[in-house]
Computed example of a mutant assay.
Amino acid sequence: MQLHVRRLPPDATVTVDAPARLHLGFLDPNASLGRAFGSVGLVIDGGGTRIEARLAERDQIDGALTEAERERIAICLARLHAAYDPTPVAIEVIRTPRAHTGLGSGTQLALAVGVAFVRLLDHSATPAELAVLLARGARSGIGVLGFEAGGLLVDGGPAKGLHSSLPPLLARQPFPESWRVLLVSDTARVGLHGEAERRGLAALAPFPQALAAHLCHLVLMQILPGAAEADIVPFARGLTQLQQTIGEYFAPVQGGVFASPDVERALRAVAAQCTAGIGQSSWGPTGFAIVASEYDAACALAAAGDATRGMPHIECTVVAGRNRGAEVRRAALRAQRRAHAV
């Protein structure tokens, strides 16, 4: 999606709502079949990021964010200024998920800032171009692709030697409207990130070629067809198998198939009671159970709650899938239209 509009008036505010995503698994973590990673992911309607941007006398960064997030936004703004425009802007973070919990908050935040910046200052850039500039999507393109279009996504992993491009979109399947996603998160933990993540990936044994082929088969012949036909049985079976396989591979680094034993306890209880595709998003600690209806989601929520009773650090919520990308609004333009209508 090309981002280009007339430069906004000085009092304009650009608001960007960027959706969260679940990373459902890698297909080939170390290129046993010739191409590394390859990802499956789902954009969800909950846990997203909202920012507001306006022109200012100097760069400002305010709102609901940590000091580390503030520093990352400052780096984003420095790169945007260098690439496009020195004009100062003020960024206010209205909401963003807790960092390093498996919801893709880093990419959401960076792209939201980038899109708001170019919209505010009348420059042309696609989310993919902004992602490369802001150093997002190096291993997985799910966050960037989801920002653009939403839905259930498969990317092809990064091409060797192409450090200035994102993993290509291979498939986008609309997520069934009636399906629901139970999110289970451990608020006492964060997932691997930064240098610890890089060391962890480097320490892993080679991923067997036969397992990579098996994961690709699960995606092509169970997960995507199940979503296309709104048939939860093959979808759940294929996704749970994929997650179990990739979780066992990452277990030496993250301490088990799931990063949080309590999240795993909740999701195993859900799977014992209803048809659900269960797993962990990225490095966790957020886990998920995808079910076929609101009724099944209520049953899953009850099962997870029973399994984690007395564990206040475990949070459970139900969300829908999201078949659209980020939303961008321009407050000053709306106010002008209302004035003309009077």
Score class of each variant (00 low, 15 high):
Ala303Gly: 00
Ala298Trp: 10
Tyr249Cys: 02
Gln244His: 11
Thr240His: 03
Leu242Glu: 11
Leu267Val: 08
Ile278Met: 01
Asp306His: 06
Gly287Gln: 11
Gln244Leu: 13
Phe235His: 09
Pro261Thr: 12
Ala307Lys: 02
Leu239Ser: 02
Gly305Gln: 14
Ala236Val: 05
Gln244Asp: 14
Arg268His: 09
Ile278Asn: 00
Thr286Phe: 13
Ala292Phe: 06
Ser260Asn: 13
Leu267Tyr: 04
Ala236Pro: 02
Cys299Ala: 10
Thr308Cys: 15
Pro252Met: 04
Arg268Asp: 11
Thr286Asn: 10
Thr240Ile: 09
Tyr295Ile: 12
Ala298Thr: 14
Gly247Cys: 01
Gly238Trp: 00
Gln273Ser: 06
Glu294Phe: 03
Thr275Phe: 00
Ala269Pro: 05
Ala304Gly: 15
Val291Leu: 13
Thr275Val: 15
Gln243Ile: 08
Ser282Ile: 13
Thr286Tyr: 14
Ile278Lys: 00
Tyr249Gly: 01
Gly284Glu: 10
Arg309Asp: 14
Ala271Lys: 07
Gln243Cys: 07
Phe258Asn: 11
Cys274Ile: 15
Ala303Leu: 02
Ile278Thr: 04
Ile290Cys: 11
Ala304Gln: 05
Val270Thr: 08
Gln280Phe: 01
Gln241Pro: 00
Thr245Gln: 15
Ala303Trp: 06
Ala276Ser: 05
Thr245Asp: 15
Thr245Pro: 05
Pro285Glu: 15
Ser293Asp: 09
Gly277Tyr: 03
Gly310Tyr: 08
Phe288Cys: 03
Gly287Phe: 12
Val253Met: 13
Ala292Val: 07
Arg265Tyr: 05
Ala297Gly: 04
Arg265Gly: 06
Ala272Asn: 11
Leu239Glu: 02
Leu242Phe: 08
Met311Trp: 13
Ala307Leu: 08
Glu264Val: 00
Arg237Lys: 08
Ile290Asn: 05
Ala304Ile: 06
Val257Ile: 15
Tyr249Thr: 02
Val291Cys: 13
Gly238Met: 02
Gln244Ser: 14
Tyr295Ala: 14
Pro285Leu: 10
Gly256Val: 02
Ala302Arg: 08
Thr286Arg: 12
Thr308Gln: 08
Val263Ala: 10
Leu301His: 12
Pro252Lys: 06
Ala259Tyr: 06
Asp262Met: 13
Gly310Leu: 05
Ala298Asn: 13
Thr275Gly: 00
Ser281Gln: 05
Glu264Phe: 00
Ser260Ile: 10
Ala269Ile: 06
Gly284Ile: 06
Asp296Tyr: 07
Gln243Ser: 13
Ala236Trp: 00
Phe235Gly: 12
Phe235Val: 14
Gln243Asn: 07
Val270Lys: 01
Leu239Asn: 03
Gly238Val: 08
Leu301Thr: 11
Ala266Tyr: 10
Gly279Pro: 02
Ala251Arg: 03
Gly256Tyr: 06
Gln244Glu: 14
Ala292Tyr: 04
Ser281Arg: 07
Ala271Tyr: 00
Leu267Arg: 02
Ala259Gln: 15
Gly310Pro: 09
Ala272Asp: 15
Gly256Lys: 04
Val291Glu: 08
Glu264Thr: 00
Ala289Lys: 07
Ala236Asp: 01
Ala298Pro: 03
Ala289Gln: 07
Ala276Leu: 04
Cys299Thr: 13
Ala259Asp: 10
Trp283Val: 02
Thr240Ser: 15
Thr308Arg: 03
Ala271Gln: 13
Gln241Phe: 00
Phe288Val: 06
